[in-house]
Design a protein around this nucleic acid. Structure first.
Lengths: 221, 221
DNA sequence: CCCGGACTCCACCCATGGGTCCAGGTGCGA
DNA sequence: TCGCACCTGGACCCATGGGTGGAGTCCGGG
């Protein structure tokens, strides 16, 4: 995951936070580490983007709540335009929405602001190396959310339905009318109806709306 | 999250892997770090538990595939009996099931075996400090699973739909035909149709099947 | 070799759904 | 008071869906 040789060059870090009272001490504190070089500070998302465009950067330490462009949006653009730059979120908020959207936007770390100096530095190093560091609480939330997904809850369809019938059910689940299903499968609409009728009988499906629900529940759509 | 003073004592680490060819070099490699002290090696889950019971331990570096008791089960017991011990999983497998079950069991890190020495050491330090380090791939999988949960993804219905229309959509999503909807709401079928027509126009819904999908996606059904 | 299952298709029927146009009643805020 | 949004309802039309019965092909197994 990372080369055996590390610590060649100090990590170039951008600190982004709209509150100077947070940003400045943070930057100063990080600069004390010999392997960290704070090359810029930003007060909003736009400043982050321009800062990264102006010079090579390894890691952005990003607050979420910022004026003009928030940290999530900045992260999204950053990872699009500069995928080599790692983003570590550092915020006071650790609600599910913030976590999910920030990580979805491409953040490679998520710390809350009760993290210590060593925690932040470690997260920066890890992010630069391609790893991802999460606060324990953040990890727990993410995990809880992930666990909540019934990834396998497949409403058991009767197993005597044929592969063709399963195909048809899938397309019904996608909202296609019979004609579109027929075209998709290169068969006639009459055949589609036949499959549907057999399917309904086998699986105790009442009508098309019911079929859509079953298809979704079964994970077909 | 962690005290300002760190690196007081070297971290006491147990290395668990059933293959001596992996375990021994790994332990030796980690021992080279001045702040890491490999106090035991284990070839299966039972050995891990006895090793931890015998002496104070900060971090267990745990393989998942082990005989007698696998890493997940060992992690579960460990975090129950010794919650102060951090477990970092180090394995070749990164499938969703392994990740979810290991983290659910209480692991505070999950690395794949193409991690470098620095990656592993960083993960150990982070875990000891209460953070959680994941491989980027692992984080992505966890995130994908979490994102799949219907907890947030509310397909945004246009907000100019009226309460009544929303009610109707909910019932459509439950698979009810118009007549049943009419009876349920104590209105005529004609009125139901009117609501449905307005609804379809506002929300760009094509037909009933589409409506079912939207209702489910919106969390109405 | 024949049987049965799966897939394909047709014809016919009628219930339901979906679209259009219109219109009365109610309640609320300008 | 007027307008407006919302809920309510009716009439009409035609497309789609759903059900029945029948029939042909292909293929694998008994």
């Amino acid at each position: 995951m990372s080369e055996p040789t590390e610590n060649q060059q100090p990590l170039r870090v951008v600190v982004a936070d709209d509150q100077a009272a947070v940003r400045e001490p943070l930057a100063a504190m990080l600069g004390l580490s010999p392997d960290i070089d704070v090359v810029a500070a930003a007060a909003d998302g736009h400043e982050v983007l321009t800062a990264v465009a102006a010079r090579p950067v390894d890691v952005v330490l990003m607050d979420l709540r910022m004026p003009r462009m928030d940290g999530t949006e900045a992260t999204r653009r950053l990872t699009e335009e500069h995928p080599e730059v790692a983003v570590v979120v550092l915020t006071t908020f650790a609600d599910d929405d913030s976590i999910l959207s920030a990580l979805s936007a491409g953040a490679r770390g998520y710390l809350t602001k009760n993290s210590g100096r060593q925690d932040i530095i470690r997260a920066i190093r890890a992010a630069a190396a391609g790893q991802s560091v999460l606060d324990r609480e953040v990890q727990n939330r993410l995990l809880a959310t992930a666990r909540a997904t019934p990834s396998a809850p497949k409403d058991p369809l009767p197993r005597d339905i044929t592969p063709r019938e399963r195909e048809v059910l899938t397309l019904i689940g996608q909202g296609l009318p019979n004609r579109a299903i027929a075209e998709r499968l290169f068969i006639s609409e009459a055949t589609v109806k036949t499959h549907i009728n057999n399917l309904f009988a086998k699986a105790a499906i009442r009508d098309r709306a019911d079929a859509v629900r079953r298809a979704i529940a079964a994970g077909l759509a």
